[in-house]
Design a protein around this nucleic acid. Structure first.
Lengths: 125, 125
DNA sequence: AAATACCTTACAGTATACTCTAATCCACGC
DNA sequence: GCGTGGATTAGAGTATACTGTAAGGTATTT
């Protein structure tokens, strides 16, 4: 059970962002103490970690919100949610493959620099 | 030698963005015809591809601009430019590793869905 | 009880990277 | 020679995801 400051420090997510996520309805499981202050526990930590794994792999907040809304509707949305995860997994894998392709271009550029350092001095990008 | 429309279609980058990149000084090698219209050739294509490989791997335009400015200064900046590429390569590789870690979380979630489909029906995120 | 340190809310501001609008210009076909 | 379709420019607008501010509340410490 941590306060917003503690939870922010534990997770590396700023209090602003934590409140923002909650306001937008994508961070569930946040409790309150008697005076209205936020309390974060294991449940909110799990949610946050899940949200972060979607966010950090490029899912926009609007789509994460859709997922969370489906979750709140209950078991009847299980299939849809699974499909969302499958689609997202596909996109992430495609994106990683693409990134690795672009990385090759960067490596090629680095090879040119090495080549140039060995005395070959034509100017290159 | 293509006009902005043709080049846009060839590369998939909108005319707006092509002009924007040029205005910001990150797309070099764009020529003009006698009446002032842009002409794109092999040189501009090479630049664009290079820029895109940086952009698509997450380098902000401001940093790409820095690189291009160094390039324009000539050979004296070779070492700096190489270092920028090395740093970026490191970041991209780190980011890919991180993404794959987050992908595992997503795969775990998918495994839970599979598990649930086989009759186990506790509600899960 | 005053100071402090944190919290709350609503809402405004910022950063990045486009994306579009408005006004104008230019070349080709009829 | 005039309309049509493209081009040009400067500058405004948009989207997303935060990030910060203002005004005030609460609780502990001195």
């Amino acid at each position: 059970m941590s306060t917003i400051k503690g939870f922010s420090e534990e997770t590396g997510i700023s209090p602003y962002t934590l409140r923002y996520y909650e306001r937008e309805g994508i961070l569930l499981g946040v409790k309150r103490d008697p005076s209205g202050n936020r309390l974060y526990d294991e449940e909110s930590l799990e949610w946050l970690n899940f949200i972060l794994s979607l966010r950090m792999t490029g899912m926009p907040l609007s789509e994460i919100k859709q997922y969370v809304d489906l979750y709140k509707e209950g078991e009847s949305t299980l299939r849809k949610r699974k499909q969302m995860m499958l689609d997202h997994k596909g996109k992430v894998e495609k994106n990683v493959a693409e990134t690795l392709k672009y990385l090759e271009t960067i490596n090629y550029k680095l090879a040119l620099y090495d080549f140039q350092e060995k005395g070959f001095t034509k100017m290159l990008p």
